[in-house]
Amino acid sequence: MALRILGIETSCDETAAGVVEDGRVLRSNVISSQAELHSRYGGVVPEVASRQHVRDLAPVLERAVESCGMGLEDVDAVAVTYGPGLAGSLLTGLNAAKAVAYSLGKPFIGVNHLEAHIYASWLTPANPADAPGFPLACLVASGGHTDLLLMEGHGVYRLVGRTRDDAAGEAFDKAARILGLGFPGGPEIQRVAQGAAGGFSLPRAWMRDTHDFSFSGLKTALLHLAQGQGVYPADSENALDDGAMAAAVRELAAAFQESVVDVISVKLVEMARKYGVRGLVLGGGVTANARLREEILRRSPLPVIIPPPVLCTDNGAMVAACAYYQHQRGEQWPLELDVEPGLPLG
């Protein structure tokens, strides 16, 4: 009998649930995004996010089980992200998962959000544990994280590098704000950067002799360039007319994107070489960026496993996939589990 796990994810601004069979077969993946709601603030507003999770979660759960012809009672275990993330948002998902597991008498599994992003790759046609096999170099890049992790086996991680200041996704959000673009910043910058001539170049912070990242200086460099070009602030005296503004924003967005893509792809491949891994695994919203995917594939001499964009951003299926391997290891989680907003991995 296949083991069907319901995964719930509410760590930030997506209310999501999915059903996965035996850790690899995606049965459903329902995501209710709050991006539009938060776009007017240029970022996720925690209280708004919590309230929206409360409103959206029940229908999302229902659709996740019904869309694969099941009822909640047909689920074999309930898994949920308990950290890292926003405390109020995490709490909504955690409480719902406990209620479902307790009322149905099913096993309850707490999942680390960062580990879940890695397990999104187990929902692709490849099984990374068999081909290419461990050890794997993992990049988790999102609004809150830019981590390089060495994965030596199921559940065995070593944190090798991370950002020292801003996360890559946060840098995209702030760059988009400087350029007068919407939220979330990553997709917006990717969209407007298309067709750029590549006339501008922004600095790269290589953080030599480490596997760490730094994106704070890049943000400041973009700001200076945007000021010099009359793009920022948008209402300044020397602001450009509409056509010139669109062209300048396109070039600046491209320069920013290229700098981030260059640093991440080079440092990921460097880390993979140094640790003698067999392959690369990507996860997190930033890895949905087309230029980043293209550049990592171009630079890597090793197989690269990249989930489709919908599994790179936050989702419940990845939580269910991750929980399957925790369940296989015999992990048992108490219903007293609390949220851990700063939960580390590795």
């Binding site: 930030c12 993330g85 994280h145 991370r162 950002t163 200041d165 996360a167 760490d212 700063g342």
Partner: peptide
């Protein structure tokens, strides 16, 4: 390192 707390609001 003290990372930007923008995402988690407080550290």
């Amino acid at each position: 390192y003290v990372r930007s707390p923008t995402f988690v609001l407080m550290t």
